[in-house]
Write a protein that binds this DNA or RNA. Structure first.
Lengths: 235, 235
DNA sequence: CGGACTATTGAGACTCCTCAACTAACGTGG
DNA sequence: CCACGTTAGTTGAGGAGTCTCAATAGTCCG
């Protein structure tokens, strides 16, 4: 399924990893069954806490389906959302044996849970599989860098535009300028470093200016793509 | 040099990677010579551009010594610093064959340059080495997440305090409450998402309040560690 | 249908950015 | 060795934008 000539170009093209939504898919049948042997499938309803920051890190996870968020609760009581997770994303980052962020489902989710010791046994002897995980982490890293770029902006509308663009690129399902926002305004706000009031105001402004139009609170259409993308890229 | 019993616990402790300033050091002699075979040593004076964002990504680099910054230039003319690089850090992240950020030396630096095709040949057959790179990228990811947390704060002094604390932890050389700031105020500002004026004002305020004391523009001492750490952690 | 949560909208305070002037430090060339 | 110009850094006054506090409307679920 994955021969080396297939790996070569695409991997070299993006040290490391091209699209990278594919740790599971790009595996050879043998590798896939290896993973299946040590993975547990979990079905979680919306709002479930997968694990809490600081607890012992004994597993890593891969999203088979659904939407999740990673976050940290700050001493002040504020909550900071670090990332949103979609199909094929991996999570479970730890330091000194403890998870570095909490993870919660936003929509009902199906997860593969892989125990770290078992995974390590396989990784030690399988360069290909290890490389796939390398690509996964690289993908996560790019996401964090994009997040940083978003936070660089001072204006709420600009951040929001970038965020919406990101959502659109994530969900390539229906690319007809409809964007689904699966998370709450507060989650968006905590991700963008704004208050939920500012998010609300910024969205209102976009709608007032006929750049977007809402179809329910969690779905919108882009009316004026030129201005929309200009807002997102003009930083 | 690195036997499996050594790898096991430490790796499980931090999926993936413990301290991780050690891709080169933790390698077996065989691996090290493999790397040496394909690596080029570069000596660069202060202020050198290693590569520019968008150019063809044909190498990855490891910092043997010195200080560097990664950054992106935005259409508006503003510059956003994404990270500072110190000894043993790796860099060279690319997407679709192009580097995603520019890299420049802040202090004279020595780099190992490794061509991607050659590296891939080795990684394909060496799970251990691939795993080491996995740890490296994970380390970079943690840095990006910490950056995000810093940006979550709204107040300039708080960001600065967190940044200084980060610098102190990076340079474990002299841990007697002296912190060296190798980069310019503008670089700090671009990293923290502030203007250089705000950085200057915040530093002045810290000094006026007797929390820190400068010994030249690029070195300071922490006078009141309690208040200092309270500022950094009270978010 | 009721209650709790989510979302929207408004008025005032606060902080940082912008613009500007000024000082200090550094490197260059005479 | 000194003078000068350029860059880095500090400090000040005013304005723009978001946060805070508060009230209201809409939505989901039992």
């Amino acid at each position: 399924m994955v021969d080396s000539s297939d790996d070569g170009p695409s991997l070299r093209a993006a040290s490391f990893g091209p699209g990278v939504r594919d740790v599971v898919r790009l595996l050879s049948p043998r590798q896939r069954s290896q993973i299946a042997d040590i993975a547990t499938v979990m079905q979680l309803p919306s709002g479930s806490l997968v694990y809490r920051e600081g607890t012992n890190a004994n597993s890593i996870f891969i999203v088979a389906d659904g939407v999740l968020k990673t976050f940290r609760d700050l001493p002040s009581g504020k909550r900071r959302v670090l990332a949103f997770l979609f199909r094929d994303d991996a999570f479970g980052l730890a330091q000194s044996g403890h998870y570095v962020y909490s993870v919660q489902t936003i929509r009902p989710a199906t997860l593969y849970r892989i125990r770290v010791p078992a995974l390590m046994d396989i990784l030690k002897h399988d360069a290909d599989l290890t490389f796939h995980f390398l690509c996964k982490v690289t993908h996560e890293l790019r996401g964090a860098l994009r997040h940083n770029l978003i936070m660089a902006r001072r204006d709420a509308v600009g951040r929001l535009a970038m965020f919406l663009l990101m959502l659109e690129q994530n969900a390539r399902a229906h690319s007809d300028s409809r964007i689904e926002i699966p998370m709450s305004r507060s989650d968006v706000a905590n991700y963008l470093g704004l208050t939920h009031e500012s998010v609300s105001r910024a969205l209102s402004r976009l709608e007032r200016n006929s750049i977007i139009a809402f179809a329910g609170r969690h779905e919108l259409r882009v009316l004026d793509r030129a201005r929309f993308e200009k807002l997102a890229t003009t930083l």
